[in-house]
């Protein structure tokens, strides 16, 4: 009898890329639900726009390269990129900006480098950085969370805001938008207000901004799910958040009146989301165990530096992109000791 032959091993674990990406998508759900709760339907519309754009461009690129687009779209990596980007965007961002950012992420940051696995930069963050640099006004115009404004955007309102630029209130944009907690903190600090004064505003919750901190909590839940499912390693998020908390803590201890607490830094902006969903993107992160600790910690430090002294309110995207560049070098210098290799062995 004749049989087909293949290279060993002849058994397969049940793991595959689609499953990995699918679980990350699943883990996004609580955070997305929280965003929807606090900021209304714009979040969902953004997600839809981004996913549509990502799938469309992946299909086009694969056709141009003469390949079957189905497995590439089916591995869910493009959709995940779209979702990670959409989640980071303000919920009333004009539709064409969302599509432009997603197209940049898929076309330039991912496919131009060769597609999944070959991109040196996190595509979602590359798209985000493009939008933030190009349209900073739109990109920093966030709605106030519904717990403060008392109003959550309905579908039609969100639709009109996104597609026609109509402000979801008769008093114009300024009535419904507000500074994000990080932005607010920095603005108020620049007016030489003390943190204790700043925090008296009803916009503040336990750690960060009201509403915002709960979005962070739900993303944290999703992140813990990923660690539990062993989709991501604990090293990068823990190192990143610990480093951020440590640096923030040092300044806070020096003068708590003008330096926000570590908890504020952890639960504001994209720190939690970035730590679990962005910095852990395996393609662009460090892969050695020690390297992951260094990589994560440096992101944390950069986040603090850019938040405090940089030109933009939040810093996760820039920090991650900067460390993406450093990841290969970190990996090179942190190769684990091979089994049986003598510790003293010089190389």
């Amino acid at each position: 009898m004749e049989f087909p032959v293949a290279s060993s091993p002849h058994l397969r674990g049940g793991n595959d890329i689609q499953r990995v990406m699918g679980q990350v998508l699943l883990a996004l759900l609580p955070g997305v639900a929280a965003l929807w709760w606090y900021f209304g339907w714009g979040v969902i519309i953004n997600l839809g726009l981004a996913i549509f754009t990502a799938v469309f461009w992946e299909w086009v690129v694969m056709r141009l390269r003469g390949r079957d687009p189905r497995p590439v779209i089916g591995d869910l990596s493009g959709i995940l990129t779209a979702c990670l980007l959409a989640v980071a965007l303000p919920p009333t961002l004009p539709w064409w900006q969302t599509m432009m950012g997603t197209a940049f992420a898929i076309l330039v940051a991912k496919q131009l480098f060769g597609g999944l696995g070959y991109n040196p930069f996190n595509p979602a963050m590359a798209g985000y950085a493009l939008l933030l640099i190009s349209f900073p006004a739109d990109m920093t115009r966030w709605l106030e969370p519904s717990v403060i404004s008392g109003h959550s955007l309905g579908f039609t309102e969100a639709w009109n805001a996104i597609f026609s630029g109509i402000a979801p209130s008769s008093q114009g944009w300024d009535a419904v938008t507000g500074a994000t907690p990080l932005d607010h903190m920095r603005t108020e600090l620049s007016r030489e207000h003390l943190i204790s004064e700043i925090r008296q505003s009803p916009a503040w919750g336990d750690f960060g901004g009201r509403g915002w901190e709960w979005v962070a909590n739900w993303f944290l839940l999703g992140g813990l799910f990923l660690i539990w499912r062993k989709i991501i390693s604990w090293r990068i998020p823990v190192a990143m958040l610990a480093a951020l908390a440590l640096v923030a803590g040092i300044f806070w201890v020096i003068d708590p009146d003008i330096h926000p607490s570590p908890a504020f830094h952890l639960f504001s902006g994209a720190a939690i989301f970035g730590a679990f969903f962005i910095a852990t993107d395996p393609v662009t992160a460090s892969t050695t165990p020690r390297g992951q600790l260094i990589y994560g910690a440096l992101i944390g430090v950069l986040v603090y530096i850019i938040r405090t002294w940089g030109g933009y309110p939040d810093a996760v995207a820039f920090s991650v992109l900067l460390m993406n560049m450093a990841a290969p070098t970190i990996d090179h210098y942190t190769q684990p000791r091979v089994f049986g290799e003598r510790e003293t062995q010089d190389e």
Binding site: N15, P71, D75, Y118, P282, T287, V338, F339
Partner: peptide
């Protein structure tokens, strides 16, 4: 064997390698 996808550097292999290779 199914068609191989690109390596996404997930590091699963690093975790299981008994020789502690990359």
């Amino acid at each position: 064997p199914v068609k191989a996808s690109p390596c996404i550097r997930c590091g699963e292999c690093v975790k299981v390698c008994p020789a502690q290779l990359l």
